[in-house]
């Protein structure tokens, strides 16, 4: 409609003015599209001056009869409204798009995290499964001597236990994510818990010597037994994975103020500086092999849920050291 008005009005003084008027309108629209409202307004004014003064013959003012003044005012009005409207539409469109893009990026991030989780979980599950399947199929297909049979069966048992621990960790992780990791507290003798856990993991840690050093007269601590057991198991398994065969892992249990401190020190290479800051994040230690690295993340979540602290540093003589403190009264 607006354009038709301009055409009709300028047509009074000859059609040759319609084309420059439309061209100038186009410039205003473009300004609105690219530059925004203020630019569109400014360009509309400049275009009006151009329309009045700069058209050929250059310098001879066109604004004589009343119709021309009306045409000029209308041109400015139409150009300004069209330019501003267009820029408004473009602006809101851009806003919507950038909001959508933000959502899409967030979704992609979640997707990426999930993919990483699935990848490392399937890797974690397949590692013990590889041993179990190879051993079981070999037992079925070959007449091994009794010693070899026992050895293969032991490996099947060990790896199925390892699988069970991984599944336990995964369940904990899902509880943590659902915010449902509530400790069921009961008075626990931590020294006893550590000793029982170390005994249970004896085969998994068989290449190491695990030494439990519990201080005398430790108080009972109000914690969730199975959750803290999982923390100790993860720490021992971690040590077994990284410390050299034949080395010693020491678990110290002692009272520090109103807390009990558990400290696991190995004689391995210590923490890789590149993952040190992210040790307690899930998947931080995910390397080519070993573990997806959810173990330490679970330790931290459990310790946090108990109102305690967990920290990692290097022991004075090199190895990795993880210190957990949980308050005695919960």
């Amino acid at each position: 409609m607006a354009m038709v008005d301009v055409v009709v009005l300028v047509a009074g003084d000859g059609v040759n003015r319609a084309i420059p008027a439309m061209l100038l309108l186009l410039v205003v629209l473009l300004a609105g599209l690219l530059g925004g409202r203020l630019v569109a307004l400014g360009v509309a004014l400049v275009a009006a001056i151009g329309f009045a003064v700069l058209l050929p013959p250059i310098g001879s003012p066109r604004v004589e009869p009343a119709e021309d003044v009306a045409a000029l005012v209308l041109f400015v009005a139409v150009a300004a409204i069209a330019g501003v409207l267009l820029s408004t539409i473009v602006l809101s469109d851009r806003r919507r798009l950038s909001a959508e893009q933000g959502t899409v990026e967030a979704l992609l991030r979640v997707d990426h995290d999930r993919a990483a989780l699935l990848r490392s979980v399937s890797h974690d599950l397949r590692t013990p499964l590889a041993t179990i399947r190879a051993a079981a199929t070999d037992l079925q297909g070959f007449d091994h001597d009794p010693a070899a049979r026992t050895h293969l069966l032991d490996l099947v048992i060990d790896e199925s236990e390892r699988l069970d621990r991984i599944v336990g960790n995964l369940l904990s992780l899902s509880r943590i994510e659902a915010g449902a990791l509530l400790p069921e507290r009961q008075p626990v003798d931590l020294a006893e818990l550590v000793a029982a856990c170390a005994a249970r993991l004896e085969r998994a840690t068989s290449k190491l010597t695990v030494e439990v050093r519990a201080a005398e007269g430790l108080p009972l601590v109000k914690v969730d037994y199975s959750q803290i057991d999982q923390v100790v198991a993860n720490l021992l398994e971690n040590a077994a994975r990284h410390a050299p065969p034949g080395s010693v892992v020491v678990v110290d249990v002692e009272r520090v103020g109103e807390s009990v401190r558990l400290r696991v020190t190995d004689q391995g290479p210590g923490f890789d500086p590149s993952v040190r800051g992210r040790l307690f994040e899930p998947f931080a230690s995910a390397t080519g092999s070993g573990s997806s690295g959810i173990g330490l993340a679970i330790c931290k979540a459990v310790v946090d849920a108990h109102g305690g602290t967990i920290a990692a540093d290097d022991a004075p003589d090199g190895g990795a050291r993880i210190t957990v403190e949980v308050p005695i009264d919960g």
Partner: peptide
Amino acid sequence: DDDASLASVLAVG
């Protein structure tokens, strides 16, 4: 292979 358990199975086999 760094998986000692699997290596042990393969060694026997």
